[in-house]
Amino acid sequence: MNKKYYLFVNGKKVEVSEEIYKVYWQEKNHENYLKQIDRKNHLLLFSSFDQDGHFESNISDDKFDLNKVIQTQMMIEAVRDAISKLTDEERDIINRLYYNEENLRAVAETEKISHPALIKRRNRILGKLKKLLKDFE
């Protein structure tokens, strides 16, 4: 007996493979889990901003500290600016380790360097970022 799997795409029921079905629901469950953590930590999502980047009128919950939101946004911009000043190789390592959440061994393997060498390189890059961000504190 072949079980059929369906997903709704643009309001239409579409048959998909079992693999696609499972991957979709795994991602959907992960997304819901992350949203739950965000709500628990009272995080303000960028999706709550309007297209012009204004968010003051979108905040209806008095639990949010507007100054903290602004400070966080400024910090994000400072980190983005500091990362943009890294070399392509340094930026790639940071992206893979912290944004793509790859582990050190996997990155070391693809970079064809030892695990300890990657740790030293990562620490050097983080030191460089710390110096670039020293004025932000």
Rank of each mutant, 00 (worst) to 15 (best):
85 K>S: 05
78 A>S: 11
134 K>T: 06
123 N>K: 11
131 K>E: 14
27 E>A: 03
118 L>N: 01
29 N>D: 10
14 V>G: 02
37 I>L: 06
17 S>K: 15
108 A>R: 02
119 I>S: 10
25 W>K: 07
95 N>E: 05
48 S>I: 10
100 N>S: 02
52 D>S: 12
81 D>C: 04
121 R>S: 09
89 E>S: 01
53 G>I: 08
81 D>W: 00
58 N>V: 07
135 D>I: 14
82 A>D: 06
25 W>N: 07
50 D>Y: 08
136 F>M: 15
76 I>L: 13
39 R>V: 12
60 S>W: 01
81 D>M: 04
127 G>M: 09
103 N>E: 00
99 Y>E: 10
110 T>P: 05
66 L>M: 06
132 L>F: 03
60 S>T: 06
72 T>V: 11
122 R>E: 11
103 N>V: 00
51 Q>C: 00
28 K>L: 00
12 K>G: 07
95 N>S: 05
123 N>Q: 10
107 V>D: 02
121 R>N: 09
21 Y>V: 14
130 K>P: 10
73 Q>H: 10
53 G>D: 11
106 A>G: 11
135 D>V: 13
105 R>F: 04
113 I>R: 05
28 K>D: 00
53 G>N: 12
21 Y>D: 14
83 I>N: 00
94 I>Y: 01
2 N>W: 10
51 Q>I: 04
6 Y>G: 09
2 N>R: 13
90 E>P: 04
116 P>W: 01
63 K>S: 11
96 R>M: 04
24 Y>E: 01
26 Q>C: 08
137 E>V: 08
30 H>R: 14
16 V>H: 07
119 I>P: 03
80 R>E: 04
69 V>H: 03
128 K>A: 08
94 I>Q: 00
113 I>L: 05
40 K>N: 15
114 S>R: 07
16 V>K: 06
113 I>F: 03
85 K>I: 04
58 N>Q: 09
29 N>T: 07
57 S>L: 03
121 R>K: 11
3 K>H: 13
116 P>T: 03
129 L>M: 13
50 D>C: 05
